[in-house]
Each structure stands twice: as structure tokens, then as C-alpha cells.
Design a protein around this nucleic acid. Structure first.
Ligand SMILES: [Mn+2]
Ligand SMILES: [Mn+2]
Ligand SMILES: [Zn+2]
Ligand SMILES: [Zn+2]
Lengths: 166, 166
DNA sequence: ATATAAACGCAACTACGTTGCGAAATATAT
DNA sequence: ATATATTTCGCAACGTAGTTGCGTTTATAT
């Protein structure tokens, strides 16, 4: 686990009070958060436009990633500092350079519960395409959004019967 | 190719003037269209709220599907009438029933060009996950959004040299 | 023909995100 | 240390996709 200032230091990024506060909030959340979610965790006085700008900045500097939920509002989540696949990812045979890869890229799937709306990062689930995408299309990133019911909201299908008792 | 009325008839859905007009527009477009795109193709008098409602209705009745673009506005596209994989799709081992599968499900990837913003349906590219998603998560659908540069916007990497001439 | 329900049209509203601009803070030059 | 240039911040106004409420029209049922 890294502190916010460590994250900035390692990436050679200029920290400010606002940036540290926001990053702090995001670092503590297991789940991607909406702008509102984040704002609620910040001091009353924190300006909402500043938050938008800080999020933009964190985004372009690779500190966080964002996912569009079913409600079409962004959810923000801190990037994994453990560098799993650090080299430029290649899908198909087309080499691509990402806009900002100072910090870790994020290339895992996301799950959003249709019942409670909560979003989950499935850090182990990565995209794999059954078919090559058409040639001449240059791929920068692949986003996977899974919809369904989360652990908490999925009802048990049938009461489980202990096999020993049948 | 099906006419709008045929689509409704086959699916046992009640057509109205508005529904037919909207479906007609969507059926003609190779690409997913925004609400605005569609409105522009409709008669001047067509009410924008009616369009929203028709789109909702077409959506829940499986006539169209929609994809969230990078700009967080929906793009709508007619469903493929050729029934490729008609049976309920199963990912992992979890059986799921979709909210509305009167008509064809859509389970192909989408590509959005970061340069021109145009969206493409990659009808042959289907999701495949490297890892099973966590058990107890019930999957309803998997959405794949690829970002990059489309055919028109991707610059040729090097001028091609005719091998016969070297 | 009358009653009931679905679809439509219009105006007002909500919510996320953006833009403009002056004030404050931070960095750079002399 | 002081002056100057550059970023960042705070506030108000704005833009736009999509929604809601409600009265009117159109279709369906008896
Ligand atoms: Mn994530
Ligand atoms: Mn499509
Ligand atoms: Zn849930
Ligand atoms: Zn393009």
C-alpha cells in the first residue's frame, strides 16, 4: 500500500493539497467512486469544480482510471501500483502507445450490479478477443463492462442441500 | 434485410407511426447513432421526448441495442436479425436469463475512434475472458468497448514498397 | 357509442460536466 | 528579497443528455 505522496513522488508529479486529499480518498476505496461519492468524503468546503479538475489531472497522469457506469456517470478508481503488465500491451499485431503511461495501465474488467448499482474491479479478468479486430484499426485500449448481479444481490438459486444427508 | 414493419410483425410487437419511422432510420445506418443523429434524420416536427420514449421501447423489446460512447451519450443501433447465437448465452457456468430476448441478443464488440469519434460494430468480435469472474456473480451481459483509431483515421505506418521492385 | 388504456406533445426540470474569469498560491527570474 | 510569470483554485454561469408531469390525442375493448 502506498501513501498519496509516495505515489506522486515515484511518478515525479507535483502534489498539491487538493490532489493529495482526493487521491487519499480514492486510495481508501475498494470500489470505483462517482464524483459525488468522492465529494462526500472530502471537507465540506472542497469545491466541486476543483474536484473535476483534479480528477482530470490524476487521469491524464495515470494515477487513476475511470469507467462509465450504466448511468453514464464516470466512476474513478486508483490504479494498481503493483506493476503487473508494464510493457506496452499489444492486441492483434498492432503496436500502440498509450496517451499516458507514466503510471500503471489498467486493463481489467469491471462489473456493475444491475440491482444495487455498485461497481467492482475484477483485477484478474483481462480482455481476450475471440476474433481479430479488422486490420487497419489501431487499438489503444479494450474496456470490458460486465453487467449482472453482485455477490450481495444474487439470490441463492436453490437452498443448498448437504449431499451427505441425502 | 428486413423492413421495419417486418421486424415488428415477426416479433409480435405493436407498431406505431413513430416507432416505424425511428426504426426505419436506425435500420438504414451502418453505425450506432446518437439521439441527435437520429433526430436529424426524422421529420422536423418529430418530438425529441417521443424519440427518447420510442428508443426506450425499442430497447426493452430487443429491436435495438445501445452502447455508451466515450462522451457518455448513448448510441443506438439496430439488432442483427440473423439469429447467430439465439440460445441464452452462458459465461462461466452461471445460467442467466436476459431481461428481454424477444429479438436477437447483441453480444459483439464495439470500436470507437478516438480521432473522429465514429463508432463501429465489430459483429465478429465476441467477448472471451482470460479468467473466470468470481463465483456468486451472476453475469447478464458482457460489453466490450475498444478504443483506438479507425480505418480512415489510422495513418499508414510506412509507405508500402512493392516487393517485386527491390 | 362509451369507457379504458396506450402513445404523444409540450414545458419544466434534474444532473453531470464544462467554461470563463478573477483571486490566490506557487514557481522562476533578476 | 523583490518582481514577474505560471499554475492552481473558487465561484458563477452555462451546455446538454436525459427525465418527469400532465393534459391531449389516438387506439383498443365492451
Ligand atoms: Mn478498475
Ligand atoms: Mn453493435
Ligand atoms: Zn449488487
Ligand atoms: Zn476515425
Amino acid at each position: 500500500m502506498h501513501t498519496s505522496s509516495q505515489i506522486f513522488q515515484e511518478a515525479g508529479l507535483k502534489p498539491t493539497q487538493s490532489r493529495l486529499e482526493v487521491t487519499g480518498v480514492l486510495a481508501q476505496s475498494e470500489y470505483p467512486m462517482t464524483h459525488q461519492d468522492i465529494l462526500k468524503e472530502l471537507p465540506e468546503s472542497f469545491d466541486r469544480v476543483t474536484l473535476y479538475r483534479v480528477l482530470d489531472w490524476l487521469l491524464t497522469n495515470g494515477v487513476i482510471h475511470r469507467i462509465a457506469g450504466e448511468d453514464r456517470t464516470w466512476r474513478f478508481h486508483i490504479n494498481n501500483s503493483d506493476l503487473t503488465n508494464k510493457q506496452t500491451t499489444r492486441y492483434n499485431s498492432t503496436p500502440t502507445t498509450s496517451k499516458s503511461n507514466k503510471l500503471n495501465q489498467h486493463s481489467h474488467a469491471h462489473f456493475q450490479c444491475e440491482n444495487c448499482g455498485k461497481m467492482f474491479c475484477l483485477n484478474d479478468v483481462h480482455p481476450k478477443l475471440t476474433n481479430d479486430i479488422p486490420p487497419d484499426f489501431v487499438v489503444d485500449s479494450i474496456e470490458i463492462n460486465i453487467k449482472g448481479k453482485c455477490v450481495n444481490c444474487a439470490k441463492p438459486l436453490e437452498p443448498l442441500v448437504n449431499p451427505d444427508h441425502r
